[in-house]
Amino acid sequence: MIDGLSLRRLIHWSLLTLFAGITIFMRILPVDLRPGAWPGPDLVLLLCFAWVMRRPDFVPLLLAGLLLLTADFIYMHPPGLWAALGVLAIEFLRPNRIDESETPFMFEWFEVALVLGFMILANRFILGLFAVPQHSILLEFIFYMMNLASYPIIVIMSVRVLGVRRPISAAELRR
């Protein structure tokens, strides 16, 4: 029935949902309503990226897509576009084989930077294609930098605090 593995999976799915809920909640707090604030990082997306490369079963596709879609609706963004790009990015980063050795963090960071850059460019392209009014490219660049800067923190929090680590393959065990 519910063995140790499925319980861990359920716990991490609930953690993901809870984290998304808390992030959305904190962002919509009406503290200072003056405009001109810098865009904060998309923490839910970064958390999905960090988890999917270590324990892909902790990030079910439907849950991640629904969380990103809900965030789109609440944040007054064009609904569905960022969620679709996020789902594609998560699937791209999902490892196919489990016995990949531990890659250095720099490569992982670089890969996430590339994927995020493509997401932002595709977002701007599609919005431009459909003649949706957009923000200045400077703000998007600040958003990109904030995301890249927060990614190591998210990874440290996931690995140390939440224990989301890459499973050791049989080859490594034998060594």
Binding site: R27, I28, P30, V31, P39, Y75, M76, H135
Partner: peptide, 14 residues
């Protein structure tokens, strides 16, 4: 006022 729009590009309140 319950909530902000959550995005720095949309100025609206709930």
């Amino acid at each position: 006022v319950l909530a902000d729009s959550g995005s720095p590009f949309r100025q609206s309140v709930l």
